[in-house]
Design a binder for these strands. Structure first.
Lengths: 186, 186
DNA sequence: ATGAATGTTCAGAAAGTTTTGAATGTTCAC
DNA sequence: GTGAACATTCAAAACTTTCTGAACATTCAT
């Protein structure tokens, strides 16, 4: 068991990143597998990855498929080797931007649409004081969704994982929007 | 059923925000309840909230307790009324900063600690090329966690929900850290 | 073609999460 | 003190997600 210190350290890191990934709404297995590949000496085969993470062959297969779908793990062919090997994408920006693009953006958009529907409904309702207040509050939620959308869009446009360019992009959140978000009960 | 347009619009918004909240790892019911209170004409009693959201009394009670624990819903007493009423916190910044503080920060810290443990283990292992590479990669994960910690800390220090001050705080992510994050396979 | 090595799929098992509703607790008017 | 009006708790049910493992598919060397 001379390799066991390496394995133990890798597992420790893999589980930590697994928790982060789970916290962000993905399966813990995705984070564990990515990290194990990231820390591996070289690209690993599915069986070896499964052994290191104590996952069944089925789980490994599904996990690798999903990681490839997210573009954060690549399949590599080794000359002379029959089986396939997998290696982790190591460019954090590539990974984060891709996930943000696919996941956050579409949700924010769908939410905005539903809030707009809600507001339209309220605008057709009798214009009581209560309903005018409702329209305004749905409007604040909408302003927040719009801001989130624009922050995400600008973040993606900034093409960096280090966040240092957030300054520029936040120019895009116009004062009107920004103001609306500070509201207290009307 | 003259109120039903209002109820329908509220439910539409509540479900949309419920999805956002679920996406961020909370129970959908929390988002639905907060939104329903936010859009309500006035503070609501538990029974009324349960009726509007079609939730059982038990679920309403647990949900309101949790929302209060997060500090995003307040209990209010109405003079002359026996039961308790609940109203939504309307200051988005207050809500977001509180949640970020309690939730994200502690996770990032615990993850950083585990990664440090992993690195310490690897440093004690035989100094092969593979192990030196492992130490370096765990180091990159750590740099990322540190940056996330500092971004979150600065975000909280900025005391605004509109993100416009992100510029200043990102000075805190020193170039060394920023550089390490752009790495490709070593 | 055959079979050994490997990857993939999917039905069912296991695990985890959320909700329900009946029992219990609390408060207040009388 | 009693009972009506609520709120809270918690065990069990319902639901959801994830994992397992056996069956199936594919690939390649011979």
């Amino acid at each position: 068991m001379s390799e066991s210190v390496e394995r133990e350290a890798e597992l420790l890191a893999a589980d930590a990143i697994g928790d982060v990934i789970e916290h962000w709404g993905f399966r813990k297995a995705l984070g564990r597998a990515w990290t194990m590949l990231y820390l591996a000496d070289d690209a690993l085969g599915a069986a070896e990855l499964g052994e290191r993470l104590a996952m069944s062959a089925g789980a490994v297969s599904m996990t690798l498929t999903e990681l490839q779908r997210w573009g954060v793990v690549r399949r590599v062919w080794k000359p002379g080797e029959r089986r396939e090997f997998y290696e982790a994408e190591t460019d954090f920006w590539k990974m984060i931007s891709r996930v943000v693009h696919d996941r956050e953006r579409s949700l924010v958009t769908s939410v905005r649409e539903r809030l707009e529907q809600s507001r339209a409904l309220l605008r057709k309702a009798p214009s009581t004081a209560a309903n005018r207040a409702r329209v305004e509050r749905v409007g604040r939620l909408l302003a927040f969704a719009s801001m989130a959308e624009s922050v995400i869009g600008s973040f993606l446009a900034s093409r960096r994982a280090d966040f240092s360019e957030f300054s520029n992009l936040l120019q895009l959140s116009r004062p009107s929007v920004v103001g609306a978000l500070r509201g207290r009960r009307g």
